[in-house]
Amino acid sequence: MADEAPRSAIPFSINNQYVRDLSVENPNAPMIYGSMKSSPEIGINVNVEARRLQETSYEVVLSLQVEAKSGDQAAFMIELQYGALVTVSAEMDDERLQQILLVGVPHHLFPFARSIISSATIESGFPPLLISPIDFRQLLSKQQAAGASENGSAAKASTEQGDAPQG
């Protein structure tokens, strides 16, 4: 269509992705395998942080904390910090920058983090945990509504999810 504006260049690039930290605990093995009568209750905490490294370079870290309980016993606990080095366009306003760092980049990182969590649950002797997709835009909106203060070099958003489906 003639009235459509031309698509602008992609405003960011992910230069590298990496596991920054991974912790897996299975504190009640092997007894938990025989004592579980049903799927464990799953609690998930999600956090996204971004910090400026250089003028147009940022580190974005998606943190997932998963805790599974069967009754009053811990089945497993997994903590993952999955990071990315990101370059953004120099002509970016603060609002758009925040959207990219706290919504766009985590959206791209999530499938990789989800896969790592799933593999960790399998290696712990449990069925794979398939975390439901996360709406990072809603996560940021909730954080903003809570009155979170932001500065020019760091930003943060977090939430908790309960009872994620066991795959």
Rank of each mutant, 00 (worst) to 15 (best):
S39C: 06
S39L: 11
S39P: 09
V46Y: 05
N47S: 15
V48C: 10
R51W: 08
L53W: 08
L53M: 13
L53S: 08
Q54E: 15
Q54A: 14
E55D: 15
T56R: 12
S57V: 08
S57G: 08
E59P: 04
L62V: 03
V66Y: 01
E67W: 00
E67F: 00
A68Y: 00
A68S: 09
D72E: 14
Q73A: 12
Q73R: 12
Q73W: 00
A74T: 15
A74C: 09
A75R: 07
I78S: 04
I78H: 05
L80V: 08
L80T: 03
Y82H: 13
Y82E: 03
A84P: 04
A84V: 05
L85F: 13
T87V: 12
T87D: 15
T87F: 05
T87G: 11
A90R: 14
E91M: 13
E95F: 13
R96F: 12
R96G: 06
R96Y: 12
I100K: 06
L101V: 07
L101C: 09
L102G: 04
L102H: 03
V103P: 01
V105H: 02
V105G: 02
P106A: 03
P106M: 02
H108Y: 10
L109F: 07
A113E: 01
A113D: 02
R114T: 06
I116M: 08
I117D: 02
